[in-house]
Design a protein around this nucleic acid. Structure first.
Length: 511
RNA sequence: GGGGCUGUAGCUCAGUGGUAGAGCAUCUGCCUUUUAAGCAGAGGGUCGCAGGUUCGAUCCCUGCCAGCCUCACCA
């Protein structure tokens, strides 16, 4: 079937899909056109918003006239007078329409429905039952809705709690048709407003310190900077397969080599792996690299930055997340990975051989594979036993070198690197290190990764010769940081699924 | 990938091996300050898809599709 034929067939199926409700609305649309009403006009002069009107209304003030626009979300018709609520970007407000006041417009209004977008001009007043409303002098259809919206009703009970009836709650539909979710479940909108504030407050914080926001390639000939499987795509003109980036790291460090002393990028990374409550195939990452600094300095910066983000987004350094209250007030606890394991399990793994580590894992009922090296065993014990216990923001420091091929060796602890992860609410929020800038060591670390890859580790890194060449020219000592913006937003908005902080989380295509 | 749960009207959900149900929404009538408006009446369904068992399947069985939870994997 050709593309055109498919489109044609889609249109036919849309027509077949029309049910009684849709047909009814299409008939109303025709009737409005017959009455010379343009159901899709070009604009409307708005001069007021629902929430502002409700806030500024005074019973003893002279009546004020306003023009508002929004979507009809509830409707109560009583013969020759009607009430409806319209929702605009700031909230909703009741409209009162009386036939004797608006004449033929009232007949047009009878052809409108929940879901239609209207502009209203009228006078603000308070009804008998006390609700601040707009007494319409005119009403104009701004967009006719031909597909019925879920109708959610709510009331406030005696205790002052909002009770919702028939909520639009089907998760699949809420994600696939986020536009409906946003219209009907208005509180969803708040999450995304906060998300935008997370990003803008990070930008403000970093810009104020003089770091330069940059953009680096999403399509990369070699992927790197993280342990993950990539997506592959094809460039036709070059006849070459590119990878969608799994991280920005190696490009940003090239810019440090080039002489920028502080660069950051906020962008999408793509990882071709499983999906769950904290993983989406594409996600947003902040990466920051600052020359002449190390990971200790970076911990200070992260504390200050996230405190400042929390203040901007939540209005406080303390945030309620599920059952817990998380306090981002610095300083945060800093503990080495091995010490944290010792605290939780009583096992001192410092300097232990691989066999000793495997035995310790067995004692702790942590499953390990024979193929796992020392670093992976330690990581497995940490992930399973320690990570879930870390609710308050905590820096876990000094990781085994074999887990961190891009991090600089620890200045005093053999076998470890200068790396930290920020743990919070039982999850990792950030990852950072003193960046490895020794080109000889970097080459041998890549070669070790290549050996792992040859052994079947699909997530091992590949050797990036151009990146090595850049390091050979010389990179200053540098501190690097990555923060998962989605996960940070989850904490700051108290959402337990990454899907709830993304407008359009990945879904299998509808059939 | 394993396990569990789910899919019935526009929305939220009951339900049964024998013509498919409710509330809200919709439609008709009445109603000029209602608010989960109300009163009276009416219409609306490929019971996710495809097979199988059966005289008969929305229900039982198998496969598939999609979603959620969970484990594994994974930053």
């Amino acid at each position: 079937m050709s593309e055109n034929e498919e489109q044609l067939s889609d249109r036919q199926s849309f027509e077949q899909e029309q049910n009684e409700l849709t047909k009814r609305r299409l008939a109303e649309l025709d009737e409005l056109k017959k009455q010379n009403v343009n159901p899709y006009p070009y604009g409307f002069d708005v001069n007021a918003y629902s929430a502002d009107i409700l806030e500024s209304f005074r019973d003893d003030a002279p009546p004020s006239e306003v023009s508002v626009a929004g979507r009809i979300v509830s409707l109560r018709r009583m013969g020759k007078a009607s009430f409806c609520h319209i929702r605009d970007s700031k909230g909703k407000i009741q409209i009162y329409l009386k036939r004797d006041d608006i004449g033929s417009i009232y007949d047009q209004f009878k052809l409108m429905d929940i879901g239609d977008i209207v502009g209203v001009n009228g006078v603000v007043f308070r009804t008998k039952t006390g609700e601040i409303s707009i007494h319409a002098k005119s009403l104009e259809l701004l967009s006719k809705s031909v597909r019925p919206l879920p109708v959610v009703k709510e009331k406030v009970d005696e205790q002052g709690n909002k009770v919702v009836f028939d909520p639009f709650s089907d998760k699949e539909m809420r994600y696939r048709q986020r536009y409906v979710d946003l219209v009907v479940n208005h509180e969803v909108r708040e999450v995304f407003v906060k998300r935008a504030r997370v990003v803008s407050s990070i930008r403000k914080f970093l810009d104020e310190r003089g770091y330069l926001e940059v953009e680096t390639p999403v399509l990369q000939p070699i992927y790197g900077g993280a342990a993950a499987r990539p997506f592959v795509t094809h460039h036709n003109a070059l006849d070459f397969d590119f990878y969608l980036r799994i991280s920005d790291e190696l490009y940003l460090k090239r810019l440090i080599v080039g002489g920028f002393e502080g660069v950051y990028e906020v962008g999408k990374d793509f990882r071709n792996e499983g999906m769950d409550k904290s993983h989406n195939p594409e996600f947003t990452m902040l990466e920051l690299y600052v020359a002449y600094k190390d990971y200790n300095w970076m911990m200070d910066l992260v504390e200050n930055m996230i405190r400042s983000v929390s203040l901007s987004v939540a209005g406080s350094a303390k945030v309620k997340v599920g059952e817990n209250t998380i306090d981002f007030t610095p300083p945060w606890r800093r503990v080495t990975m091995l010490d944290s394991i010792k605290e939780v399990t009583g096992e001192d793994l410092n300097g232990k051989s691989e066999a000793d580590l495997a035995a310790a894992a067995k004692r702790l009922h942590v499953e390990v594979e024979p193929s796992m090296g020392a670093g992976k065993i330690i990581d497995a014990i940490f992930s399973e036993l320690v990570e879930p216990t870390l609710i308050q923001p905590t820096f876990i420091t000094d990781y085994p070198v074999e887990m961190s091929p891009l991090a600089k060796r620890h200045r005093s602890k053999p076998g470890l690197v200068e790396r930290f992860e920020l743990m919070c609410n039982g999850h990792e929020l950030a990852n950072a290190f003193s960046e490895l800038n020794d080109p000889i060591d970097q080459r041998s670390r890549f070669e070790e990764q290549a050996r792992l890859k040859a052994r079947g580790d699909e997530e091992a890194m590949v050797v990036d010769e151009d990146f090595l060449r850049a390091l050979e020219y010389g990179m200053p000592p540098t501190a690097g940081l990555g923060i998962g913006i989605d996960r940070l937003t989850m904490v700051l908005t108290d959402r337990e699924s990454i899907r709830d902080v993304m407008f359009f989380p990945q879904m299998k295509p509808e059939k």
